[in-house]
Design a protein around this nucleic acid. Structure first.
Lengths: 102, 102
DNA sequence: TGAATATATGCTCATATATTCATTTGTTGT
DNA sequence: ACAACAAATGAATATATGAGCATATATTCA
C-alpha cells in the first residue's frame, strides 16, 4: 500500500503543532509566558504585571496547562505557574528575535 | 520618569510576537509552511500535497505574505512561494520537536 | 466557625477566523 | 482572438475564540 501523503506533514501532526503555536498566538498569553521566563510566578502577580484581570489570566493558564505548556504548583492559597519545558522557552525567544530583526 | 511596566514584555511587542505565532496556529497553514521547507513550491502543488483547495491555500498564503513569512515569485502563470527567513524554519522544526518528544 | 483572600469555572456576547463557492484576473498556446 | 489553465479575490457562512461577569472552590487567619 502506497503512502500517498508521505511528502507532506501528517494531518494529525500538523494539528498538534498548530495547537502548540495557537497557545502562543494571543498577546495576553504571550505576555503571560514571557512573565514565566523569570521563573515561577503566581496568578495575581502575572495579572498585575501585564494589566489583565485575574480571571482572564486564570482562563489562559488553564488552556496552557491542558497543553502542558505550563505547570502549576500550589502553595497555600497561591498557585505558582512555571514554563514546563525548554522548547517553549526557545520558541518564545526565537519569536521575539524574529520580530526584532526586521 | 519611572518605567512601571519594565518587567513585562511591552504590549506592542507582545502583540507582534503573538501575530507571528498566530500565523502558524492553523493546521492548514502549518502544513503549507512545512511544504515550503522543501524549497519553492507553487500554489497548486501545495494544495494537492496537503489536500486543501487552491482557493483556501491562496487565502492562507496572502496572510503569510502580508506578515512577510513567505515570499512569492511569479513565473508565467504559476506562482512559487518560499519561506522568507530562517527564523520561521527554526520555529517550525522546534515546534515539531516539541510535540514529538512528549 | 466566619471573614478575607487567591484562584477557578460556567456562561454569554462580540468578534475573528477558516473554508467554500462564484467570479475575476493574468498567462500560455493555438 | 479564444480556450485552457493558475492563482487571486469577494461574499457568505459556520465555527472558534477572548473577555467579562457572576459564582464557586479552596485556604488562611482571627
Amino acid at each position: 500500500m502506497t503512502k500517498l501523503v508521505s511528502r507532506s506533514l501528517h494531518a494529525v501532526t500538523a494539528a498538534r503543532v498548530a495547537e502548540l503555536f495557537q497557545a502562543m498566538s494571543d498577546p495576553s498569553r504571550v505576555r503571560i509566558l514571557f512573565s514565566l521566563l523569570q521563573g515561577e510566578v503566581n496568578v495575581g502577580a502575572i495579572a498585575a504585571q501585564i494589566g489583565v484581570s485575574e480571571s482572564a489570566v486564570s482562563h489562559h493558564l488553564r488552556g496552557l496547562r491542558q497543553l502542558r505548556i505550563v505547570s502549576a504548583r500550589k502553595d497555600g492559597r497561591t498557585v505558582f505557574y512555571a514554563l514546563n519545558d525548554d522548547h517553549v522557552r526557545s520558541l518564545l525567544t526565537l519569536g521575539l528575535e524574529h520580530i526584532e530583526h526586521e
